[in-house]
Simulated scan of single mutants.
Amino acid sequence: MLYKEIHIGQFIKERVAEQEITMERMCNFLHKEEEVVEELLASKSMDTELLLRWCKLLEYDFFRLYSSHLILYAPPSAVNKNHNKSEKIPYFRKNIYTQEIKEFIIKRILSGEMTQSEVIREYSIPKSTLHRWLQKNNTINE
C-alpha cells in the first residue's frame, strides 16, 4: 500500500467490498442519496465529518492513512520544531511508527524496491531504528 498518493474514495470502496455493505445501508447511515454516495466513492478527498462517518460505518480508521503519510513524507525539519507546540490542541510526535508503517518499509526493502539508504534518505528514518526493525523481522521469520 502506498501512502504517498491517497485516493480516499478508492480505499473506502475497497473496504465496502470487503465488508459487503449494501448501497441502502450506506445511504441510510450517511443520510445521503445513492448518487451522492457514488460521488463520494469516486472522490479523491472529502470532508472530515463525512470521513468520520465512513470510519464508523466500515469500522476502519481511514485517518490513519493520512497519519502514515505524514510520518513518511513530512519534511524532516518538522521534527525539531518543538517550540511550536500548542497548549490547546494535542501534540503528536512524528517518530511514533505504527506497525503498518514498519511493515510497509520492510516490505519495500525486502522486495528490492528500495535500499536501506534510500529508505533512510526518503523517509528520514534513523539508521539505528531501521536496523532494529530489520533485525526484529529476521528474528520473527527464523
Results as ranks from 00 to 15, higher is better:
L50C: 10
A42T: 03
S86N: 08
N84Q: 07
F29P: 01
S77Q: 07
N80I: 09
L41P: 00
K13H: 07
I6F: 12
A17C: 05
Y91D: 05
R64M: 09
A74Y: 09
S68T: 12
E35M: 13
R25P: 02
C27W: 02
M46W: 08
I8L: 07
R15Q: 00
V79A: 03
L40V: 04
T22W: 04
E20G: 09
K13D: 14
I109F: 01
P76E: 15
R53L: 15
I109D: 00
R64G: 04
E14P: 02
A78R: 12
I21F: 01
T22Q: 05
I71K: 00
K102S: 02
N95A: 03
R25E: 13
E35L: 15
L2K: 06
E24H: 03
T98N: 02
Y60K: 14
A42D: 14
C27Y: 01
N80C: 11
L30V: 09
N80Y: 11
A42G: 04
V36S: 13
E103H: 01
H7V: 05
K88D: 10
D61S: 11
E34L: 12
N95W: 04
T98W: 06
E39K: 12
S67C: 03
V79E: 10
K88G: 08
F11K: 07
T48Y: 15
L2W: 03
S86V: 14
E100L: 07
I109R: 00
P76K: 13
L41H: 02
E49K: 12
P75K: 12
Q19M: 14
K94R: 14
L41W: 02
P90G: 08
E24A: 02
V36A: 09
K44I: 12
I101K: 04
F63A: 12
Y73W: 10
H83K: 06
K44C: 06
F11A: 04
K102I: 09
L57R: 04
H69M: 07
T98R: 03
Q19E: 08
M23L: 14
K44L: 10
E24Q: 08
E20A: 07
N95R: 06
Q99Y: 05
H69V: 05
K4S: 09
Y97F: 13
A78N: 15
F11S: 01
D47N: 14
L70F: 14
I12N: 00
Y91S: 06
V36E: 09
N80S: 15
F63G: 12
R108A: 04
D47W: 07
A42H: 09
I6K: 10
F104P: 01
K81Q: 13
H31L: 08
I21C: 05
I89A: 08
H69T: 06
Y60W: 08
I105N: 01
Y73M: 10
E18Y: 06
R25T: 13
I12Y: 01
M26P: 00
